[in-house]
Design a protein around this nucleic acid. Structure first.
Lengths: 337, 337
DNA sequence: CTGTTAGCGCATTCAC
DNA sequence: GTGAATGCGCTAACAG
């Protein structure tokens, strides 16, 4: 039924070793016999069996990718960066959603390892000791993508979330705002949550602005929770003049909450956030935000992984990609009001 | 270095066949020896090699997924449906972006087949004879996801794009509109392009409205092209009162174009489209649209594929999932104007 | 219930 | 340049 390398060898009148050589582009084959083999391959419709090759060579040319949720546009964008570079280096990717659930993450890491991936890209929630333990049992390189482990034991690619948040809040401050609220993510989340919150606090502190707990609401990164948080701020006696949101999605929720209340952005409230998802430039007013290079985070982490897999020397196992403040129309100076 | 089934056998004092049995949950093992084996596995940190298993059993428990672009929210949503169901049936997915490029599609189909996937899910542009040819060389089941082939030779899961468009235009007509423009996709694209355009024409015809070529603009499905198209309509002497857009994204572009021109939706123009991406309810006014069940398209096609892979009987190899008109705020009656 | 024996399809020495 | 032999780690009969 299925045609093997052996069939091709017989058809071409050579040994299977020779067929293997031409299939793998080994130069030590006479052009003439190479041609014969190609013809036999064509005639028989031979298709190399990558599983057998993987067993024999101990390389599968596939990498595992653990991702929180591919339907989240941020991760989808990162994934595209990963796949493009993987493709460029002739790797395929096995994609596993793990929803930032530790248990699920550990499980898929193991099945990926069983499948003998040549490397692993991990995007997840907190990197716990159990994760590190699972990584240790792996005999292939691993890189953290859009996350880091606390001790910096695992190669990683990410942005500096704290500074990104700091910069965002700072542009608010530079516009004269001093009553600045924050819509945060959960503080359990080290990157998008805790670090961005820290950046907020530091910016305030640096400007000599008192931190007030009732100006911070915890959301879940989603649009709806941005609306909820903003509703709360709207109910305050002493309202803020600006809002810093940990993510664009919540910021957009806040904008719509404000507008639905008959007020406007940035006239009544300035809004800034971090991410720069596509939607940020597809709202009115267009959202001012600190862009994180999603595609590049994916691309660079995959590139790093290819180096590790080829045992090439890498001098920067911990890459911090630059972020950039994109001034659009959701922030104005207090004076203008 | 790597511990094999043979090491475990020695450690447990049994044969490798027995180890294989307990690893594969074969009931024919005495609980006692099963325990011994588990302990040996634990002690040695044994991890089954799925590649070797795949070679021996001729099953890899992985399926290939060809997708146009994972960073497109529609496909990302479908992909999530696919992966959830795959996961449920203990399959992993190899994800390949092919950007609707025929050449790239054929190439990844072949590498997926080389990797011995147990099945293939195909999302792409046009399904050409070359695609069918590639499918024929496969010895594993294939299902088309969010596409169909013209002759209906390959199992598929999709919505009825023409009727979805028809319904959309019809709700415009029921609201009293007769000057209805369309922002279409390329007519080369059978589903999102041609079929939706046909639905538009049929709805007009059915209502006795003359089809006018200058009321149709071709976009590329993206936000910006929606803006462009709307600019054109705004420049017409005899302007339409309603716009039907083939996709939500272009519709949102149209809305913003209108608003940026100082006009409003739905007061000056009613807008309707097809898709129901998340963003549709995150614009002001919220977009009225015909929803296609993205997640379900993915889930159902994967479910169908599992049945095919298990050689179970399926009576509907061509599934059409229902669409549904979601009335929001971007459409109003002409009388109200 | 358990062990023995063959391959699965290919890469890879090692000779020639 | 080319061929013969070996084994990658596991499943799957087949015996017993």
């Amino acid at each position: 039924m299925t045609v093997t390398i052996y069939d091709v060898a017989r058809e071409a009148g050579v040994s299977m070793a020779t067929v293997s050589r031409v299939v793998n582009n080994n130069p030590n084959v006479k052009p003439q016999t190479r041609k014969k083999v190609y013809e036999a391959i064509e005639r028989l419709g031979y298709r190399p069996n990558a599983v057998a090759r993987g067993l024999a060579s101990k390389k599968t040319t596939t990498v595992g990718v653990v991702i929180p949720d591919i339907s989240n546009s941020i991760f989808a964008e990162i994934a595209r960066g990963i796949e493009d570079i993987a493709n460029m280096y002739h790797y395929n990717i096995i994609l596993c959603n793990a929803d930032k659930k530790k248990e699920k993450e550990i499980r898929v890491i193991n099945t990926l390892l069983e499948k003998q991936v040549d490397g692993l890209l991990f995007m997840g929630g907190v990197v716990t000791e159990d994760h590190l333990q699972a990584f240790r049992t792996a005999s292939v390189p691993i890189v953290l993508c859009a996350t880091t482990d606390e001790q910096g034991l695992v190669p990683s690619v990410d942005i500096d979330h704290e500074t990104a948040a700091y910069d965002a809040v700072n542009t608010l401050i530079r516009h004269g705002h001093r009553d600045i609220a924050m819509i945060s993510g959960t503080l359990q989340d080290p990157a998008n949550g805790f670090a961005r919150f820290q950046g907020y606090k530091k910016a305030l502190e640096n400007a000599g602005i008192e931190y007030k707990e009732d100006l911070v609401r915890i959301g879940n990164y989603r649009y709806e929770s941005g609306i909820e948080a903003m509703k709360y701020f709207l109910g305050l006696k002493k309202k803020p003049t600006a809002i810093f949101s940990a993510t664009d999605e919540m910021a957009i929720g806040a904008i719509h909450c404000i507008q639905d209340a008959g007020l406007s952005v940035p006239e009544d409230f300035s809004i800034i956030s971090v991410d720069n998802i596509r939607m940020a430039s597809m709202v009115r007013p267009q959202l001012t935000t600190v862009a994180q290079p999603m595609y590049d985070i994916g691309a660079v982490s995959m590139r790093l992984l290819t180096k590790l897999m080829k045992k090439e020397h890498v001098d920067h196992a911990h890459v911090i990609l630059p972020h950039e403040t994109i001034l659009r129309l959701s922030v104005s100076s207090v004076n203008e009001e």
